[in-house]
Design a binder for these strands. Structure first.
Lengths: 124, 124
DNA sequence: TTCAAATATGTCCATATGGAGATACGATTC
DNA sequence: GAATCGTATCTCCATATGGACATATTTGAA
């Protein structure tokens, strides 16, 4: 599966192990959302997501470790940029359920149609 | 945002708070995958994902709390079924990045085309 | 009624987590 | 070189987590 050891006593997979864990945190998701509008400075990000700078940095590190952001140095600033391609595992996983969702919606439509038909048939 | 209290000392949002956290665990994802083929018994699920029954039950409870599965009693068995509609928040969130992904891919194509053109121009 | 099957729940434990805040570090400006 | 800005890192802490396993609970069967 991946590199890190899986001791049977390990409480859970480290956050940095995959994209799923990385986006499990609301703040990290918000950071990604903020980066949708383009490259941003750590302090800008911290401000935008209302987080103290050290925490923003830490979350950015986690995001970087799973490849969701890249970092570029500009003088003493670091510019972080979205790397959305790495959301693909998440995208692909969810995609498997698209059909299931649609089937379900189809069934709902069938059900509603049937209800309507019944209503027409016996006028109760 | 939601109901549960957010004490500043709270380590993180409870797993049961949203779908993102719920699917952060590999076993829960596997359980959902297994349920893609239809309604299943707890013991069947436990067997399919190679998990002791109590753990399977606990993960199923988490999945149930965020609405991703529903449960139906049949004698002493419980039949769990996928409720994929509740993946929608996840789906929608990822969808926001589709465009970003595509833009990025477009740029890559542009870049590759440009490389090719340059290669044709100066035959180095 | 007693037993067994299917499932849920509770406890214990090692560990990962995120928040807070102090501080180290590298680059810039004076 | 010294002060300063922008970031990263480190420590401390409360808490959530998942694994393991014992046990309670519910229900069907003998």
């Amino acid at each position: 599966m991946s590199i890190w050891r899986y001791d049977s006593q390990m409480a859970r997979a480290p956050t940095t192990s995959d994209v799923f864990n990385a986006v499990g945190d609301i703040h990290r998701r918000t950071i990604l959302d903020v980066l949708l509008s383009g490259e941003k400075t750590v302090s800008a990000i911290a401000r935008d997501v209302s987080l103290p700078q050290p925490q923003a940095s830490r979350h950015l590190r986690v995001l970087g470790e799973v490849g969701l952001v890249t970092c570029r140095a500009d003088g003493r600033r670091r510019l972080y940029r979205l790397a959305p391609e790495h959301l693909r595992p998440l995208h692909d996983w969810v995609a498997k359920y698209e059909q299931a969702i649609n089937v379900r919606l189809d069934r709902l439509e069938d059900y509603l149609e049937e209800l309507q038909r019944q209503g027409e048939d016996d006028g109760s």
